[in-house]
Amino acid sequence: MTQVKVQSLNIGKRVIKIKEINILQISEKDNVVVILSEAIADDYFYFKDEKYNLKEAIPFGHKVALADFAVDDKIIKYGEIIGIAKENISRGSWIHNHNIISDRGRMKAGDK
């Protein structure tokens, strides 16, 4: 696991610490990784020598995009397709049920 490096930004009275965070890629095929600590916007991580900055706050255990996705692009975790993008998603964004969907176990839009 990577070392946590902290730098401070003074914004008014609040001190927001931009930090390097730990992530987990479960399968080599995955185009998302799991955040292993609570993270805020601008927190960053290095993955395969590339730096990724988070676009927004992402809670522990949630996913972040390793690439830009267009509508209907496949989202891969555990080496398998877990859903498709509902909207355009940019690298470093939070990936969750607001921007991805799976039709398994429910009536598909065209079936009604």
């Binding site: 996913k63 398998e80 877990i82 859903g83």
Partner: peptide, 12 residues
């Protein structure tokens, strides 16, 4: 809330 987005992700 715990970060599981789809039923397929939960199954995997």
């Amino acid at each position: 809330a715990g970060g599981v987005s789809t039923v397929v992700e939960k199954a995997l």
